[in-house]
Each structure stands twice: as C-alpha cells, then as structure tokens.
Amino acid sequence: MRSTFLAPGLKVGLLGGSFNPAHEGHLHITRMCLRALGLDRVWWLVSPGNPLKPEKGMAPYQERFASAQKMARDPRIVVSGIEKELGTRYTADTLAALAERFTDVNFVWLMGADNMLQFPKWRNWHRITETVPIAVYPRPGYTLKARLSPVATMLRECTLDTADAALLPMMAPPALVFLSGPETGQSATKIREAGDWR
C-alpha cells in the first residue's frame, strides 16, 4: 500500500470479507461508512479463507481479489491483501498486527448487523472489541436483532448515539456505534446462486 494511505492521524475503516464476489452492496455500505464516520479511507481486506465459511463454492483468492479491485470504484477504497501478507487467519490477529504496524492510524472495524449476531463465534472476539472501535451497518432483517444482541448489551455503556458516529474513529476501544441508512439486500450468496459469478 502506498505511503499516502498511511499518514499519521488517518481514519481508516476496515471491511473484511471473502468478496466471493465483490458486489454493489459492498460499495454501498462502504460509502455509507465513509460518510457517517468521516473516514478518510476504507480498506477492503480480502480474506485468504474465512474460518466460518465452507471452502466449497469459494473462488480462488486471486479471482476474489480481482473482483474487489473491479468493484472498488471510489478513490477512497483500498483493496488490500494484507491478511495474506501477514499470514493471519482470524480477525483478532489481523487487527492486532495492524494496530502494531500502523500505530498512528485510527482504525475502525466495519461489520454488518448479521455478523454482529455471529460475533460470539469469532475467535477472541473480546480482544477485537478491545483493539479497535466497531461500527455496525444495517442489514435487512438483522438490524434490530443486532441492537438487542448479547454483544450490544455488553457494550451498551460504550455505545455512541448514531448521530455521534463521526466521533467513533478517535475513540479508544471498546467503542461501538450502530449506523443507520438505506439497507441493501445484495449478497454474494445471491449472486452465486443466480450463476452470475465465474
């Protein structure tokens, strides 16, 4: 990644995923997060392999990376292969490595409301909440459930009002905010099921 992306004080959202394939929904939620959180950049972290997803139906890494590059039609989006470079498999390890490597960058973990419900299944998820602030973007059918989830309850005292979302990148973790905005029903699963991938 070019050094211009790593200026001290930069506010960077981290959107991890398989990108199997990348689609308009990724672009939609990225722009929502850029606007609501006042971010300078969003890095799309293309995962070499998601431990919670089956390998069957997973396109090769290079194809998924290429689909993310093609879809990232915004100069503020950086498609990153840093997880592959670091050799990390779990989000907690990736975030710890990034925080150590880029000490002057203000990272925010971006996750969908659907993932918020699965969060306790993630390895060392408590460590994630202690490493970076977290912004949860709305997903159809999951937004209210995420707000009522056990993780949300646990983090209630360090949860910002949605209107104060722009403060999140500068806050020390744990810190959480639920974003609001138009929900997109697009998903990589639907694209694959329709036969529109590969």
Rank of each mutant, 00 (worst) to 15 (best):
T30G: 10
G112M: 08
G181R: 06
L160A: 05
G13S: 11
T30D: 09
V136Q: 09
N106A: 15
A166K: 14
D164Q: 14
L110Q: 04
P182M: 11
D40G: 13
S180E: 14
D161K: 12
M32A: 06
P48N: 05
Q186K: 12
A59V: 00
L45V: 11
K70D: 08
H28W: 00
M71H: 06
N20Y: 05
A72E: 01
T88K: 02
A194Q: 13
K84W: 09
R139W: 07
T129P: 02
K56W: 08
F5R: 12
M116I: 12
L52E: 07
I82A: 07
Y142M: 08
V42K: 03
E157G: 09
T162E: 14
L155T: 05
V132C: 03
W122H: 13
I82G: 03
P182D: 15
D93Q: 12
H28C: 11
R139T: 03
F102P: 00
K145F: 07
Q186F: 09
W43G: 02
P120Q: 11
K145L: 15
Q118W: 06
I29P: 00
E55R: 14
A172H: 10
P60E: 12
L27P: 01
A113T: 00
L37S: 04
A66F: 06
K56L: 10
P120G: 10
E130M: 13
S180A: 12
Y90T: 06
M171W: 01
M1W: 05
D74Y: 06
A7C: 11
N115F: 10
K53C: 05
A175E: 07
S149F: 06
G112T: 08
E100V: 07
L15Y: 04
V79M: 07
D93E: 15
L37T: 05
M171H: 05
M71K: 11
L144H: 10
Q118R: 10
I82N: 04
G17H: 01
K11E: 12
G57Q: 09
A59T: 04
P169C: 05
R123W: 07
V12D: 00
R139N: 07
R73D: 14
G141R: 09
A135S: 05
L39V: 03
A7N: 14
L155C: 09
G57L: 07
S180N: 12
P169F: 00
G13T: 04
D40W: 01
M71V: 07
S149I: 04
R35P: 01
L148S: 13
K84R: 15
M71C: 12
V78P: 00
W44H: 00
G112F: 02
K53Q: 11
V177G: 04
V78D: 02
I82F: 14
D40A: 12
G13H: 04
R73I: 13
I134F: 01
W44Y: 04
G25H: 08
A59L: 14
P169T: 03
H126D: 13
L52T: 08
G49E: 14
L155A: 10
T91I: 03
T153A: 14
N50W: 05
P54M: 06
F5M: 08
D164K: 14
L34C: 04
K56S: 15
A146C: 10
Q62I: 09
A152N: 03
P169R: 02
F19K: 02
L168S: 00
V42C: 13
H126F: 07
K56F: 06
L148Q: 14
A166D: 15
L98F: 08
M58F: 03
V151E: 08
P140Y: 09
C33W: 01
Y142E: 03
P138S: 11
G17W: 00
W44C: 00
W197H: 08
